[in-house]
Every structure is written in structure tokens, then in C-alpha cells.
């Protein structure tokens, strides 16, 4: 098991290294000088020289990268030229907001996905199965932003029962927080619920047909305990794989969710930075978002190792 985890960790670090190269080169692949691009043609030579040396742009490129990574690890991501805001500070403010929306999306989707999957598998062929399966298919096919806009139109503007703009921190007012994330979470988890539902359903159907389940039945185990101990445990392995693959989609989707619902998280910040060509923020955002993804994937992999006996045995 130790080998397994250390190998996964090693691969994650290599992945992060490549991503950091990508994020770093984003700014340097660009034609023109980023400082002049932001300050405009009218900037004084003194200003330009000051900011260039501030960002180490006058250093050789390899050194720039090393300095950038070192500063990043120390938590210093520089100052955005555009708004003169400290990137690390803003990040520290916005990351919790993103997590406060993203983590509920994960929990809600996994809970409902598995629940619906089990229901549709057990009640296979009944109307519940058909309704839920059709909804899952629609959920997989419909684009996130469209669904988000529909939710706003219906629950926000027509029925006027839920807020659809902004965000209230849970520490401020927990009830308002729940209200403010209701629509974003609903929009964000739809596709994920659909994918997990479908996967769980087909896995459960497969597992339920296997011999050991029949044996368990014959031994007089209750139907509910068969479902939730024997069957689900075995159906869970492929589901976790799917979850690992979906994490980057959730993270990517949160950008759209934040934009549509005006949530001051990292996603909307990134979009603003991109439209403003605020390279320092783009760099930092890409790296931070990727770190979140890479480590969630690592977590899933490790979880996978604990659950799947084949891996556990193979890697000892």
C-alpha cells in the first residue's frame, strides 16, 4: 500500500510540475511585453522598468520560473498590476467561497447519484426507473449554463423564492448561506448526479445478478442489508473511478456556475482576469485550480486503493 501511495504521489508531483510549466509559459508565449500591455503605451520608462524588475521580467527565463515557483510555494503570488491587489490575499478570500459551493456540489451529487442509482436498479422496469433514467439522460445531455439559466428564470425570477445572485458566507448567516447556494448547487450537481446514477444503476444490476448475492439471499440476509452491505460495496469501485474522472469537470463547471450566479469565487475571478488580460491572476488561478484537481484525484486514487482488494493485494 505504501508503494502504491508513494507512486501516486510521485506521479501527482510530476503532473503538477508540468502544469506549472504550462501556467508559467502562458504569459511568455504571448507576443509583446505583459507590463506594457497592461500599463498602456503612455507609461513612463521608469514605471515600466520598475514593474519589469518587480516581476523579475528582466531575469533570464529559467530564473524567472524558479523565482515564480519559489514565491508561489512561499505563498507570495505577487501583485496584480491591473487592480494593484495582492494575488495571494484575494485568493485566500476567494478560495473558501469556491469550496463552500464546490464541496456541497460533490456531496449532493454523490448522495443523490447513488440513491437514484440504487432505486432505479432495484425497481428496474417500473415507472420510477423510467422517469429517473430519462431524467438522467437529459441531465447528461444538457449543458450546464443552460440549466443554470433555466433555474434562475424559474426559481429566481418567476417564483422569486430563492436568491440567484451573490453569496453569503456560512459564518455570517448559515440559513442565508444555504439559500444562496441552493440554485448554484442544483445547477452544478445535475450532470454529475446523472452520470453517477447511470453508473450506479448498471453496476448494481451487474452485481445483483452475481452468485454471492444469490448466496447471501439464500442465507436469509435481509434484502436491505444485502443492498447496502454486499451489493453497494462492490458496485462502489467503478463509481469511484467515475468520480475521479468527474472532478475536473466539477471544478471546470464551477467557473460557469460562479459566473452565472455572480459568486465571488476563483472561477469568476479567473474569467475577469482573462477578459482583462491580467496574466498574474490567470497564472495563479490556473495553478491553484489544477492543484485542487490533482489532489482530489490523488485522494480518489488512494481511496480506490483501500476499497479495491485487487489493488490492495497487488501493492501490498
Amino acid at each position: 500500500m505504501f508503494y502504491y501511495i508513494s507512486k501516486k504521489l510521485f506521479v501527482s508531483l510530476i503532473t503538477l510540475f508540468i502544469i506549472s510549466l504550462f501556467a508559467f509559459s502562458l504569459m511568455h508565449l504571448l507576443p509583446g511585453d505583459p507590463v506594457i500591455n497592461v500599463l498602456g503605451e503612455g507609461a513612463t520608462d521608469e514605471d515600466i522598468a520598475y514593474w519589469r524588475s518587480y516581476y523579475n521580467l528582466d531575469q533570464p527565463i529559467l530564473k524567472q520560473y524558479v523565482l515564480w515557483v519559489r514565491n508561489f510555494i512561499k505563498g507570495d503570488m505577487g501583485v496584480s498590476l491591473m487592480y494593484e491587489e495582492d494575488v495571494s490575499e484575494t485568493l485566500a478570500r476567494r478560495l473558501p467561497v469556491t469550496l463552500a459551493v464546490g464541496i456541497p456540489i460533490c456531496i449532493v451529487s454523490i448522495f443523490f447519484g447513488i440513491l437514484f442509482g440504487v432505486i432505479t436498479a432495484v425497481k428496474r422496469g417500473t415507472w420510477i426507473d423510467q422517469v429517473l433514467t430519462t431524467m438522467a439522460n437529459i441531465g447528461i445531455a444538457s449543458p450546464l449554463f443552460w440549466f443554470a439559466i433555466m433555474l434562475i428564470l424559474i426559481f429566481g425570477m418567476q417564483l422569486n423564492i430563492l436568491p440567484f445572485r451573490g453569496f453569503v458566507a456560512p459564518s455570517e448567516n448559515f440559513v442565508e448561506y444555504l439559500k444562496s447556494i441552493a440554485l448554484p448547487v442544483a445547477a452544478g450537481s445535475l450532470g454529475f448526479v446523472a452520470v453517477i446514477t447511470r453508473q450506479t444503476r448498471s453496476n448494481m444490476l451487474e452485481v445483483l445478478n452475481q452468485d454471492y448475492i444469490r448466496t447471501a439471499r439464500a442465507n436469509g440476509l435481509s434484502e436491505v442489508s444485502i443492498l447496502f452491505t454486499e451489493a453497494l460495496k462492490n458496485a462502489l469501485i467503478p463509481i469511484i473511478t467515475i468520480m475521479g474522472m468527474q472532478i475536473r469537470i466539477i471544478v471546470g463547471g464551477s467557473i460557469i456556475i460562479e459566473q452565472v450566479f455572480s459568486i465571488p469565487g476563483i472561477g469568476s475571478w479567473l474569467i475577469r482576469a482573462i477578459t482583462n488580460r491580467d496574466y498574474w491572476i490567470v497564472q495563479a488561478c490556473v495553478l491553484v485550480i489544477s492543484i485542487v484537481t490533482v489532489f482530489s484525484n490523488l485522494l480518489v486514487d488512494i481511496l480506490y486503493g483501500f476499497i479495491d482488494p485487487r489493488i490492495r493485494k497487488k501493492w501490498r
Binding site: 508503494y3 507512486k7 497487488k314 501493492w315 501490498r316
Partner: peptide, 14 residues
Amino acid sequence: NLKMHFPVSESIFS
């Protein structure tokens, strides 16, 4: 005296 041995590695790190 032909010999063909295939390495069967159980894991990369072990």
C-alpha cells in the same frame, strides 16, 4: 542452450 526469461514485475517500487 537458449533461454528466454520474461521479467514479471509485481510493482514498480517493490
